[in-house]
Simulated scan of single mutants.
Amino acid sequence: MSRPVGVEIPTPIVAAAQGHARAESPRESCGLVVRVAGALTYRPCRNLAEGHAHFHLAPEDFARAETEGEVVAVVHSHPNASPEPSEADRVMCERWGLPWLIVNVPVGHWQVLYPSGYRAPLVGRPFSHGVLDCFSLIRDYFAEVVGLALPDFERPDDWWLKGGNLYLEGYERAGFVDVTGQALREHDVLLMQLRAQVPNHAGVYLGADVVLHHLQASLSRRETYSGFWERITRRVVRHRSLC
């Protein structure tokens, strides 16, 4: 695994991160390693995520760290779990383009993950909202299979229960047009409504009556489309470049 030149995490930084993790447990802690005037220092940050299972580092805290010096690593904790990187950790490490220091509490084990070009598989990836979910699966599919880069959208946990309408409000901005009622084609995106007031789930039609999608609390998978998934489909959209 390649390592960025000059980025080594010293013991005092690990100790500071572990102390922060103990203080925040059982929630995940998060922070940044910043080079200030040539010396590395640990900056605790706020975790804005709901629940205990993941972290969302406050953007204001990142911006503040950048004014102090060079951000050289991202830090977060795995309370009562191994510091082995999760699939979401690997994806986000690539997205940030920085090393990730992962610390365990209360045992104190730790590990550093470095960007290496990793890409999560389209089938069999675990669910992590905002990182590996039905929307990110569609983005990754279009990037890898179709060769199109789709925009990303901010999506808080349970956005469909908080007045959000991500798919209906966003598909045109992402370059899609409504083709509901037309014969399905490969690469069509199926917008589905699953126990919600608005479409809150989506998948990609692969042809031959197969949909690729990613449900919460499950692995991404291919399934037969006709039947349940077809019944809850509310709109079919197609990228303009494929029309």
Rank of each mutant, 00 (worst) to 15 (best):
I9T: 09
S241G: 08
Y171N: 02
R185E: 15
L242G: 12
V236P: 06
G19P: 01
V5L: 09
D152C: 00
V198M: 02
P10Y: 05
H56K: 11
G117R: 01
Q197T: 13
I232R: 05
A73G: 06
A63W: 00
A208E: 15
W110V: 04
C45D: 06
W100E: 10
V189S: 05
H20T: 05
R235L: 07
Q193P: 01
D140C: 11
T224E: 10
S77L: 04
P115M: 01
V198A: 01
T41V: 13
V34K: 09
R195E: 13
F55C: 07
Q111L: 14
S86Q: 00
V112Y: 10
V204S: 10
L122I: 02
V7F: 01
D188W: 08
M92A: 04
R238C: 12
A23I: 04
P12K: 03
V204D: 02
S220G: 10
A81F: 10
Q18W: 01
L206S: 00
I13T: 13
R155V: 09
S116K: 07
H213Q: 12
I232P: 06
R235P: 00
K162S: 02
Y171L: 03
F142P: 02
R231H: 14
T67I: 04
E169M: 07
R95Y: 09
A37R: 11
T41Q: 06
H187Q: 04
F142E: 06
Y141S: 08
E66L: 15
C30E: 09
A149R: 07
D133M: 12
R3H: 04
E66A: 13
V204Y: 05
G207P: 05
V131S: 04
F142V: 09
Q18G: 01
D89P: 12
R22N: 08
A16Y: 00
P44Q: 08
Y225H: 05
